[in-house]
Simulated assay, not measured.
Amino acid sequence: MSSTVIPCLRYADAPAAIDFLCTAFGFQRQVVYESSAHPGLIDHAQLTYGDGMIMLGSVRDDTPFSRHMVQPRDVGGRQTQCACVTVADVRAHYDAAKAAGAEIVDDYEEKDYGGAGYSARDPEGYLWYFGSYDPWAPATT
């Protein structure tokens, strides 16, 4: 087993979101299940980054789980959490995300506690943090 905590997201345009997340942020498609009942919608997708994973699907109002979710645009872009992704080369990741059109909300910065990082939003407003700080690594102090 790799990742035991897996963020789950919903996108109004899930196919475009998958393309963006792979191009701008470096995720890889593990599996994408298109809806047979609703052409153009994604029932379930799994994207990986290293040992991590996110799952996502299209925004729908016809499932019991739908009533528990809102989109960032529905709450003024604010979020109660964001995914934190550890990347090997933050500067290169930042440059690639910026070139692909990611909205950079906190520029690349070297952190006092170690590592470097930046924050960005995807086209549907989800907030992401990418950094080199590895919370699993043994403390150096």
Rank of each mutant, 00 (worst) to 15 (best):
H44K: 02
W136S: 14
Q81S: 15
C22W: 09
G114H: 05
D107Y: 03
P7C: 06
V90I: 09
D62I: 02
C82Y: 13
F25L: 15
H93M: 10
Q30P: 04
P39N: 10
K111S: 10
C82I: 03
A116R: 02
V87E: 00
C22K: 15
L9F: 15
M53S: 10
A37Q: 14
P123A: 01
A83S: 14
V70D: 11
R91W: 05
H68Q: 12
T141S: 14
V105T: 15
V32G: 09
D62L: 01
A139M: 14
R78Q: 14
A100M: 07
G76I: 01
F20A: 12
Y94K: 04
H68A: 13
A37M: 13
G131V: 06
D122H: 05
D89P: 06
T63E: 13
M69V: 15
G50Q: 00
V85H: 03
Q79V: 00
R60M: 07
Q71S: 11
D89M: 02
V31C: 06
M1T: 10
S119I: 05
Y113S: 08
E109Y: 08
G76S: 06
I54M: 02
R29P: 08
R73H: 11
M53I: 04
G115F: 05
A24R: 12
A17K: 06
A96L: 06
C82K: 10
A17D: 07
A100Q: 10
P7G: 07
A88N: 08
V87H: 04
G52A: 06
G52V: 02
S36E: 15
Q46F: 09
D89V: 05
D134W: 00
A97Y: 04
Y108H: 09
D13T: 03
S35D: 13
D61G: 15
H68N: 13
D74H: 07
H44C: 06
L47V: 07
D89Q: 07
R121M: 01
K98H: 07
Q28E: 15
D51F: 03
Y94T: 01
T4H: 04
G57M: 07
Y108D: 04
G57W: 01
A12M: 10
A12I: 12
G50M: 00
A83D: 09
S58I: 03
Y113D: 08
H44P: 06
A88Q: 09
G77N: 03
T23D: 15
D112P: 13
Q30K: 12
A92K: 04
K98V: 03
V85S: 00
T4D: 08
T63M: 14
I104T: 08
F27Y: 13
G40F: 05
I6G: 00
R10F: 13
S58A: 03
R10S: 14
G117I: 02
M55C: 02
L21G: 08
M53T: 05
P39D: 09
G52K: 03
K111Y: 15
C22N: 13
P64T: 01
D62N: 01
M1D: 00
G52D: 02
L56H: 04
D19R: 15
H38M: 10
S119E: 10
R91Y: 08
P138R: 11
A96K: 11
G125Q: 00
R73D: 13
M69G: 08
A102D: 07
E110I: 11
P135E: 05
V31L: 13
I18F: 07
S2R: 00
A88G: 02
I54V: 09
E34P: 09
P135T: 01
S3V: 03
M69W: 14
E34L: 11
T23L: 10
